[in-house]
Amino acid sequence: MKLDIIIAGVGGQGNLLASVALANYAMNKGLEVFGTETIGAAQRGGSVISHMRISDKKIYSPLVPQGSADILLGFEPVEAVRNIHFLSPKGKFIINNYPIPTVLCNMGMDQYPSEEEILNILRSRSPQGYVIDASEKAKEMGTLMMTNVIMLGALTGIEPFFDKQEMQIIIAELLPQKVLKNNLLAYEEGYKMITDSNAGLVTA
């Protein structure tokens, strides 16, 4: 088996915790794990892309090749589209519908694409994915910081390799005790966003 995952977002969204959770999960299963992050600017506000590769064979490159990602987790819509070339035409995507405008968009010097444009590009690459309100939900539940666990919950909803219960244990090991309960509730919500209704489903 092999599973290549791209997590695309902006600094401060918690990509790293998400990729460590995926790695720990796969390691527990005795699989090979290799990955890397590309941090556009070593600071908040820049693009951050995590490559996470899981396989039962030796993995040579930490970078997911173009067209090979089985899953694209877009923590931010523009960042997801920016990295769409990694997604396999057979792959799936989950996009957090929470645009973070760029400085230039704020200034009116650049145009943040419309939801329709973003969806069209996503659809043109892959026939299957979800657009969910992960950050809105996280905010509603107390803090934007929980966007990442909601996205992980959603991931267990679309990818059978990740068992919801087992992944929950892995996440619990990574989080500080005092935020754990709320985060696990958020994780559950993320899962439900995929499985309860098909509201976020995008098909070509």
Binding site: G40, G46, S47, Q66, V78, R82, H85, T102, I121
Partner: peptide, 12 residues
């Protein structure tokens, strides 16, 4: 693959 043009994120 023609990458779609997206607004860039400058550091600030």
């Amino acid at each position: 693959f023609d990458k779609p043009k997206m607004p860039i994120r400058t550091r600030t």
